[in-house]
Design a protein around this nucleic acid. Structure first.
Lengths: 236, 236
DNA sequence: ACCTGAACACCGTTCAAGT
DNA sequence: ACCTGAACACCGTTCAAGT
């Protein structure tokens, strides 16, 4: 499954020219497999059987390659039909689809959550979402605000879920943190102490496993329910 | 205000030893001023009037330094008193405080949103938040879920708000993107077209200015309202 | 304990040159 | 148009040596 030496390209008789899409695709695969920090122009070039500097002709720079790769995550997302389905149901389905797509590329989530994406490929998605929110009863500024509430919640929450420890965290810090949590003073932190088994490794700021390894399914469904209830209350 | 040559330390007669906190503080200031990408062990060392390798004795590695710096953002946040104030009011106040703190360090927001923070300094914050949510009527798993809904919304939404374009984006891409938006087909994208003036540069996926330069105050208040309404509906 | 100074193994990117 | 190959100006980090 892995390429070596001159790379996959050399295997084919004709060495068809690289395209921009080829490079971005390869970058997505490389990041999925080795992580964002491991992505190097030189490493990616080797993987593609090409000189590092050849990539620049297609993608301009490494930051531009990374945002192009992150834009791929929500690309090709096929949204469910709207006809005959209530707006809140549709919203829930789309939210789960987006989250699933992000979970498929967890190493790209930090980019999606922190880089201002500027791609017109998202426009069909925006249109669908707007039309559904309009159907829910929002218009003008309130339409914009509810749109931002949905997108901000969706991308933001899942980005946080998928956040990972720093690359070089020393071995065993998880057990150390777990121990620190367990020894918290019950007098100064009574509520936390009382709910420690429910909280430990299940709540933001009190967990040590990533959402990659330990998906927060139940909490996501609950947060989604909060969002939809809030929208319903505001629209009604 | 800026140091040069041997740095600030040399000015004092005694060259008191560096502390870990000194390095982290300097890193926060450096990132605030020059951006996350500009942070370099070598540059920071020069700023502090010290050899690059001296920093390693205190902070271990650059990733560890960066997460330590990001943890500083919500440190020293003084939460309002709970006594005599309704849970939803308190939640709103805290949310605005957190957002304000993140806006004070926008270059650190991407780290807060995407790095799994593992610091016990957040525990007092967790306790306060839990006790307020308990007062709102949540317990056990539902307490954990509502906590995650709040934190995920708060950190996630603001991280997305503060997201910035890639460092090397070519000049004038904003106007290009604005033009692309304006020329969208009204037949295939009727809702977007109808709401274009309200959406353009105001909605996620359809803006070109960062929340740094163009804070999304109104949308944040609306999203916060959605969150609180949703929690109220679920708790009641 | 804390810092210097040299050294290692990398980076991203530019640019002239090839085809 | 697309890629090679060399070269430049950096990086983070290790480690022996100093005090």
């Amino acid at each position: 499954m892995k390429s070596s030496g001159p790379g996959n390209r050399a295997r084919q008789g004709v060495r068809s020219p690289l395209s921009r899409a080829d490079v971005v695709d390869a970058a997505v695969r490389y990041i999925d497999e080795h992580g964002l920090d491991a992505l190097t122009m030189r490493a990616l070039a080797k993987e593609m059987g090409v000189y590092p500097t050849a990539l620049y002709w297609h993608i301009g720079s490494k930051p531009q390659l990374v945002v192009a790769a992150s834009a791929r995550v929500l690309d090709g997302l096929v949204l469910p039909a709207e006809r005959g389905v209530d707006w809140d149901v549709w919203l829930g389905q789309v939210a789960r689809l987006c989250r699933a797509a992000m979970h498929r590329h967890p190493n790209l989530a930090p980019i999606m959550g922190s880089q201002l994406v500027v791609s017109t490929t998202a426009i069909p998605f925006v249109e669908r979402m707007l039309s559904v929110l309009e159907r829910a009863g929002f218009e003008n500024d309130e339409l914009v605000d509810s749109f931002n509430a949905v997108i901000g919640f969706l991308l933001g929450w899942v980005t946080l879920e998928l956040s990972a420890p720093p690359v070089d965290a020393e071995a065993g810090w998880q057990t150390a943190f777990a121990a620190e949590l367990r020894e918290v003073d019950p007098n100064t932190f009574p509520v936390l102490t009382r709910n420690m088994t429910a909280m430990a490794n299940n709540a933001f700021l009190a967990r040590w496993d990533t959402g990659r390894d330990k998906p927060m399914d139940r909490s996501f469904e609950a947060a989604l329910d909060v969002l939809i209830r809030g929208l319903r209350s505001k629209a009604g």
